[in-house]
Nucleic acid binder design. Structure first.
Length: 282
DNA sequence: TCTGATGGTGAGCTAAGAAT
DNA sequence: ATTCTTAGCTCACCATCAGA
């Protein structure tokens, strides 16, 4: 069951899990502003949380209870060694130097209530036509006063991630082509907001894992998300090139790759890199 | 011993593929 | 449209082996 929650639900979550001073530290909002229901009400238009299990059957949009797969079971639950977040971005173009994020989505693989987070982001500039054709995110859709900018979303995102993070354990972000695309974008958006990516955030590039598996299998063929979905017989939960459907696809693909490579969560951790070690912003 | 065929390896180039 | 990486291809070079 998928439940769309408004920001006040997120607020509750934040209030329960995050100290206000933490929010103030990372926010251009005052704590009062951030926690005012009306403030969220203005923004619920684009940002939502859902409650769902993280591991769903191939080709199905329904979510199972939050039971981690075998390859993660040993590290999830009380003894989980990291919080694994699968994420995806849509942007106004390929180059992180010249472009901005227009959509952000993530799913916490440990599942449960509020395990996903997605939001449109106001890039403060037009979306090129070829991008809009690709992902159906138009200038009219995101360049609106009621769509938050990345700096607006950042403190909420930080609070959300903190609320999902196990005490003392790192956060492992997974995305397809994260090293060259998603992470440089995130790094640059953080620096634009005069914020730093937390040091306990690590990332894994599933594209590298897919290439590694292809090599070990001696298989030929493409390793983009679409090809991997077809290879593993994974159906689509929505339009391609939108953040959340791509996240859902990667959530289904990732365990297949990890099983193929015999990677546990600890193995994933060995593949992880720090955000600051991604392609440097130039 | 010489010559030609064959196989392995490394360098360098090109095109494809990755993402939006 | 754009940048970067990598697979795949060609070519050169060297070693090995068989046959004359």
């Amino acid at each position: 069951m998928s439940l769309v929650l408004r920001f006040n639900l997120l607020r509750d979550n934040i209030q329960r899990n995050c100290p206000v001073r933490f929010l103030k530290q990372h926010s251009i909002f005052s704590s009062g502003e951030l926690l005012q229901p009306k403030s969220y009400e203005k923004r619920h238009f684009t940002t939502k949380l859902t409650e769902a299990g993280s591991w769903h059957k191939t080709g199905s949009s329904s979510c199972a209870p939050a039971i981690p797969p075998p390859w993660l079971q040993q590290t999830y639950g009380r003894d989980q060694s990291a919080t694994v977040l699968v994420f995806d971005l849509e942007t106004t173009g390929y180059l992180h130097r010249n472009n901005r994020i227009v959509e952000f989505a993530l799913r916490d693989l440990s599942g449960g209530k509020n395990c996903t987070f997605e939001t449109l982001i106001n890039p403060g500039r037009g979306v090129p036509e070829y991008i809009a054709e690709l992902n159906q995110i138009t200038t009219e859709l995101v360049c609106r006063p009621d769509v938050p900018r990345f700096c607006d979303v950042l403190p909420i995102l930080l609070a959300y991630v903190r609320s999902r993070q196990a005490p003392g354990k790192p956060v492992l972000w997974v995305a397809h082509n994260a090293k060259d695309f998603d992470v440089p974008f995130v790094n640059l958006e953080f620096s634009r907001c005069s914020a730093q990516v937390p040091e306990d955030w690590l990332f894994v590039d599933s594209l590298c894992l897919a290439k590694k598996l292809r090599k070990s299998d001696g298989r030929k063929g493409l390793v983009n998300l679409k090809a991997l979905r077809e290879h593993y017989g994974i159906g689509s939960n929505g339009p391609a090139h939108r953040a959340m459907p791509d996240v859902e696809a990667l959530c289904a693909i990732l365990p297949k790759i990890c099983l193929g490579l015999k990677l546990t969560c600890d193995g994933l951790m060995n593949e992880a890199m720090r955000f600051c070690d991604a392609r440097k912003v130039s």
